[in-house]
Design a protein around this nucleic acid. Structure first.
Length: 1036
RNA sequence: GGGCCCGUGGCUUAGUUUGGUUAGAGCGUCCGGCUGAUAACCGGGAGGUCUCGAGUUCAAAUCUCGGCGGGCCCA
């Protein structure tokens, strides 16, 4: 065993341990451990190129669980994964290459080169992140992460989509979706979640003139003037009440309950002149406000009388607007539904870049058309009020452009159909914490069909080939693709543009089929991770053996994202959910609870935490600070509590190794060999570490990491350091193979070895350092089993007694403080007044511990007779003695209190001065008798005797001298084992003469001579108003 | 508007599933102690209407209902 001489330095410890792992191939040995397979599936972080605190926390949680499971004898899967396709990469690469539009990509650089660049970039980013994950101690198979950009992964995706197609759950439809005009692609609803920002937009009230009703108008409200050229109808709720209001010489129609709200914005006077129901208005036709500006509308009007008419819709709300809802089926999902119902086309006069295509506004970007449209409406006298509003508006999650709604043909997975099955199958999933289950179901209830097609480049190609007649097929594998290929297209990898070259023959009409040039939503990539990472269906064996996953864990944003997407894809493919247990953890925020952003300057990088505090402390902190489902507020102040724990653990470790190394303690000493020598306190510590063992084990089974971390910290700080080390200090000083000392060594060794195993998943480096030093024949703590508590060594009664003992010691410290008696000064007697039997037992069993810690000669259960303080009872004295009352009171105060109280208690009366009083005339207050100090506790009162006898003083002065000599030894940098000779010249020499041997022993002095010395290190001290001159000299 | 979560000394939090000692810690603060674990360590004090109100109960931080405030998700 090496002796630890230096203080705790996380950097040194961790680097040494890492070198050791490297040199001895420990990580591979850990991974090679045999056991029952336990399938954990990694939620893939997106390859941004740098991990942040949240990603780090997430991986540290996973690593902790996996280490624990490994130690429990399982063989967990350790494959990490990454999300590598998709727009974020494309956007970055576009920036790098100075490309602005899809046209640029195709013309300036070419799809081929663009995709190569994306791939390079994704892999480069992934490798950077791998380095970072490794550096926070995550032991995973970093040399074989699952990568959705690989052919075999993409094939799993194709397989999945083909399954969906075969089950009729994969279809094409024209629908209104979010559309990013910069990226020129549709987006799925889950991509828009959380991507709303407050923006200022126009807010306009426009009146639509009704035909056939004189001077009467529908009043509508919108924040998107650019959608008005595409207006095809106005929707009202059939059951709402509407009013006709007179404004000057016109009549406008508005929902009754919105009347006040609307007119307070319009700042106009009005008179209500009529009432009607929404359904009364069905079919009323109006003049399109931009009929002249958009001639296409004239055709619509003539085509079908549903155009430019009032239609009925339950979706109309009374939240804002006027209750008359401008409807543009090409620009809104609900509008689109309504349009279908009334036979209106999804008129969407806009191109992929967000430029209007019809009307006089043709070629203008939508937002640029807004002011022109407002001007035109104003000119025509149809604008009732034009202002602005600040509201939430969706933005592209990658390029941050404002999104628009646009009706396009897209490919969908039919979630509507499988939703009940998802909810049903999810019932057997164990959600941690349980309430997330509800939140999840609520989320699933609200989702629509999954739009999986994207009009982009870097992604899994959509495996759909279509002929000019619109027949299409879905291809399920590369093999199938190759079989169907009729040209000589070469496909080096399953990406664009290579797959785009493949031509097939239509099984229905024989015409050439080309691939639909879309790629698949990147969320689909991760949704299939649990089987794609196993290379299903190419490798079915592994899948059949281990799927579904035992456990997944991600942040709370993933509840309606990855947790959901996985279940959806899996229910489509297998009719089953892909995981048995799912844990949700919180988000990382700064100390104030605000989100960390590079732009706001409050971001802390994981490497900052590693550099400042070290990996163990960072990891332990993130698991210890709060329950996993709550958010982690990261503060340097809080993390320092964990640093303190680590320092304390290190100090105990250092203390232990110092003496063990000195005595060449045999670390293979067995319990049976030493148990006869174990003191109560030794058995107590052994019991405690076993209890902690049990607590940590069950907390880990529940995935409640804070419940594991907190008992560990308490054990280290409270039990081990503040108590046990304090108790055994004097024992370590004994010379030779003293069995009492060996028992203490054994206990410390036992506790620290066990602690290092229990703590290994949470503090892998420090645990390894301690474990290795204490068990030299073992390779690594991470190759050991997680210990099972030894129930026969757990003694809860003893633990309880010790808890009381500590309280008694605390109470004595308190009493000493009141009596101003230093800890170093012994007292003659402690009396504990308590009827608690455990306290009594504690005093019997742990008397020696208590005596030493309290520095008392005697401690016992007993009773201390209270003194009473008698005070005149003025209320009674006044009426009784009238004018003499004051004299009586003075006499009571002057009287011999003890005698007076005794007389009253025995005879009922007492004579004070010339008066006779009885018990009514005084009030008695209990007080601590002189010569004692007391401290109240929850189990009774603890008394200390404060009388200092000559013997006590002699001991006290000896201890004062010992302390000074120790300090001088330290000043001289003497080693613990160095011997000295000592001379003491003081005027209280007689008082300490009997203590010479004791003092010599304590200070490792071969001789102590009372009298002047002439050699060595000299110092003059003032002790309790006395002078002591001390010489010490190191012996050769 | 709907679903879920959170609200505990100045700060960070445990405890809430399963109601039961005087609500437990750490940080900070004030006072004191210790001195061979020592650029450490320990004790004590002050500081709490457990967000508010009502209910259930012998008993509520904990269960129920309703406010208020904050967050996430969805409309």
């Amino acid at each position: 065993m090496k002796q630890i001489k230096e203080g705790y330095n996380s950097d040194t410890v961790e680097k040494n341990v890492m070198t050791y792992w490297e040199d001895h191939d420990i990580i591979n040995k850990y991974m090679a451990k045999k056991g029952k397979t336990w399938y954990w599936c990694d939620g893939p972080p997106y390859v941004t190129g740098a991990i942040h605190l949240g990603t780090a926390w997430n991986k540290m949680i996973k690593d902790t669980v996996l280490r624990y499971k490994t130690m429990k004898g399982y063989s967990p899967t350790l494959q990490p994964g990454f999300d590598m396709h998709g727009l974020p990469i494309e956007v970055k690469v576009e920036e790098m290459l100075n490309l602005e539009t899809k046209k640029d990509i195709e013309d300036k650089i070419g799809t081929d080169a663009f995709i190569k660049k994306c791939k390079e970039f994704a892999i480069e980013n992934m490798n950077r992140m791998i380095t970072q994950f490794k550096d926070i101690g995550c032991w995973m198979e970093w040399d074989r992460p699952y990568m959705p950009i690989k052919d075999e992964y993409i094939e799993s995706g194709w397989y999945t989509l083909k399954k969906a197609w075969e089950k009729d759950l994969f279809f094409r439809d024209k629908r209104v979706t979010h559309w990013c005009p910069r990226c020129e692609t549709a987006l799925a609803e889950h991509e828009v979640r959380g991507e709303h920002k407050m923006v200022e937009d126009p807010s306009i009230f426009v009146k639509f003139k009704l035909y056939d009703r004189e001077n009467e108008y529908l009043l509508i409200w919108t924040t998107t003037p650019w959608t008005l050229p595409a207006n095809l109808a106005v929707a009202v709720h059939p059951d709402f009440d509407y009013v006709e209001v007179m404004v000057e010489d016109e009549t406008w129609i508005v929902a009754e309950s919105l009347l006040k709200q609307v007119f307070s914005q319009l700042k106009l006077d009005y008179t209500v002149v009529g009432y009607l129901k929404g359904k009364d208005m069905e079919g009323w036709r109006y003049e399109h406000p931009l009929l002249d500006e958009n001639p296409t509308q004239k055709k619509f009007f003539d085509e079908n009388k549903a155009y430019h008419s009032v239609i009925l819709g339950e979706h109309v709300t009374l939240e804002d607007g006027t209750g008359c809802v401008h409807t543009a089926p090409g620009f809104g999902a609900e509008d689109h539904e309504m349009g279908k119902k009334y036979g209106l086309t999804a008129y969407s006069p806009i191109d992929d870049l967000g430029k209007l295509t019809d009307s006089k506004y043709e070629g203008l970007f939508i937002k640029d058309a807004d002011p022109l449209i407002i001007t035109d409406l104003t000119k025509k006298g149809l604008m009732v009020r034009s202002s602005t509003i600040t509201h939430k508006y969706p933005f592209c999650w990658r390029c941050k452009s404002p999104l628009i709604f646009k009706a396009t043909k897209q490919w969908f997975l039919d979630i509507t159909k499988i939703k009940p099955q998802i909810i049903e199958k999810n019932k057997k999933v164990e959600w941690i914490p349980g309430w997330v289950h509800k939140r999840y179901e609520n989320g699933v209830d609200n989702v629509g069909d999954w739009c999986i097609s994207r009009q982009r480049y870097w992604g899994m190609p959509l495996p759909i080939w279509m002929c000019e007649k619109g027949h299409y097929i879905c291809v399920g594998s590369r093999e199938e693709m190759e079989e169907r290929t009729i040209n000589d297209a070469k496909v080096p990898e399953l990406h664009r543009p290579y797959v785009d070259e493949v031509i097939m023959a239509c099984p229905e009409c024989g015409k050439d089929m080309h691939r639909v040039k879309d790629i698949v939503d990147v969320w689909f990539d991760s949704s299939i991770a649990s089987w794609a990472s196993l290379h299903y269906p190419h490798d079915k064996k592994l899948f059949e053996k281990i799927w579904p996953a035992e456990y997944i864990v991600e942040g709370n944003d993933q509840v309606t994202k990855w947790f959901y997407a996985q279940q959806a894809a899996s229910v489509i493919t297998f009719g089953e959910v892909p995981y048995k247990r799912v844990q949700m953890h919180g988000f990382v925020y700064d100390a104030c609870g605000d989100a960390m952003h590079k732009s706001t300057g409050n971001a802390i990088a994981p490497e900052d935490a590693v550099e400042r505090e070290g990996r163990d402390i960072f990891r332990f902190f993130s698991l210890w600070h709060q329950q996993p489902s709550d958010d982690l507020k990261f503060s340097w102040e809080d993390i320092s509590s964990v640093r303190r724990m680590a320092t304390i653990l290190w100090n105990v470790y250092k203390f232990t190794t110092t003496y063990m190394a000195l005595d060449n303690y045999d670390v293979s000493t067995k319990y049976d060999a030493i148990k006869g020598a174990l003191r109560m306190e030794d058995r107590w510590l052994i019991s405690r570490i076993n209890s902690v063992n049990a607590q940590v084990g069950s907390a880990m089974e529940e995935y409640m990491f804070h419940k594991a971390a907190r008992p560990i910290m308490d054990f280290i700080v409270e039990d081990l350091s503040r108590w046990y080390v304090r108790l055994v200090r004097s024992r370590t000083w004994k010379e030779g193979d003293d069995s009492d000392k060996l028992a203490a060594y054994f206990t410390l060794h036992y506790a620290l070895v066990k602690l290092s195993k229990i703590g290994a998943p949470l503090m892998p480096y420090l645990s390894e350092e301690i474990y290795r030093n204490f068990s030299s024949e073992k390779e690594s703590v991470h190759l050991e089993s997680f210990p099972i508590e030894d129930a026969t060594l757990i003694n809860t009664q003893l633990e309880e007694e010790m808890a009381y003992a500590r309280k008694i010691v605390d109470a004595c410290a308190n009493a000493r403080q009141k009596g101003e008696i230093k800890q170093r000064w012994p007292v003659s007697e402690i009396i504990v007044e308590s009827d608690n039997v455990v306290v009594e037992k504690a005093i019997n069993d742990l008397g020696n511990v208590l005596k030493e810690q309290i520095n008392t000669k005697i401690i016992k259960i007993g009773h201390v007779k209270r003194a009473f303080d008698a005070k005149p009872n003025y209320k009674k004295l006044g009426p009784k003695f009238k004018g003499d009352a004051k004299n009586v009171a003075d006499a009571i105060i002057a009287a011999d209190q003890n005698a007076m109280i005794r007389d009253i208690q025995t005879a009922g009366t007492s004579t004070v001065g010339k008066f006779t009083i009885d018990s009514d005339d005084i009030t008695l207050e209990e007080c601590v008798p002189s010569g004692w100090q007391a401290s109240e506790t929850d189990f009774g009162t603890v008394f200390i005797n404060t009388v200092i006898t000559d013997d006590l003083r002699s001991e006290a002065m000896a201890r004062e001298l010992i302390r000074r000599i120790q300090e001088m030894r330290k000043e001289q940098n003497l080693n613990v084992e160095d011997m000295i000779t000592t001379h003491i010249d003081c005027d209280f020499a007689d008082m300490v003469r009997t203590q010479i041997d004791h003092m010599a022993n304590e200070t490792r002095s071969s001789t102590i001579t009372l009298g002047e010395g002439n050699n060595g290190y000299f110092k003059e001290w003032s002790i309790d108003k006395n002078i002591a001159r001390i010489w010490i000299e190191k012996r050769a």
